[in-house]
Amino acid sequence: MNKFYYLIIFLLTTFSLSAQRVVFEGQYLQISGGGKYNNLYDSSIGSQHYKGLVGSTRIAYRNNSMNLRWWTELEFDGGYYNSYNFPSVSDRVANQISGGYNFGFVKPLHKFSNEFYFWGGVSLTGRYAYNQILNYSNSSDNYTFLNNFGLNGLLHYTFRMADRWWSLEWFMNVPLATYYMRPGYSINFPEDKLGEQGFTTFNQFYEIDSEIRLVFPLRNENKIALEYHWDYYNLNTSNKVQYGSHGIFITAYFKLNHK
């Protein structure tokens, strides 16, 4: 497995391809707001799927150049779950609070044309989800904490419309190695500590994080984007948890380093 990681690092550090006219260059402060529809199956809390809405916000610093894009991003979500139909306040069964980070980079790896590039890279990501099951007592506090190291892929297509350069991006992150923390098999906090924890990879855990962004140019090199995110993970330890999320975001990119 180590050879695989070395190969990835080698490829990413030796590519010298530069993307032309396909990236909005510079340093940006990114602020996103939106909502997600989440679907959770957690065998430690029941046989049902929990479905619900969360409000979500992201803040990030992005540094884009023609041969490297890197970012550090924080995310905060809050909402609730219902166990049957589309959620309403009156029949909420659980509160959900979650957050996370994504620190990563991509480099251009393949050029399809001057407007169309494939970028690749790696990320450290963290996902911390806390669910409070309202009708439960000892086991009301439920959590899934994940720290991932994974691969990034980015398809980036730039096109000209209304006399401006627009950008369509499909970003994907797939973790390779994960450190997880979950409730214990029989009780959430055995010995008053966190329950199960350990390193895992594809044999027990997989995740696909997909983000599609349509970026509109604004004045002063600022941007605004409409984004759709789909995230799914499956952690199959003693209490299986599966989570799917669909999110719509409006994102503003504020240029920080005007020339």
Partner: peptide, 22 residues
């Protein structure tokens, strides 16, 4: 490339965890 992007977009938008979940 328009076709590729359109196809990928359709795949991504129709991504649904239902086939993967319990």
């Amino acid at each position: 490339y328009y076709y590729i992007i359109s196809l990928l977009g359709v795949i991504a938008f129709s991504s649904c965890e239902k086939v993967l979940m319990e």
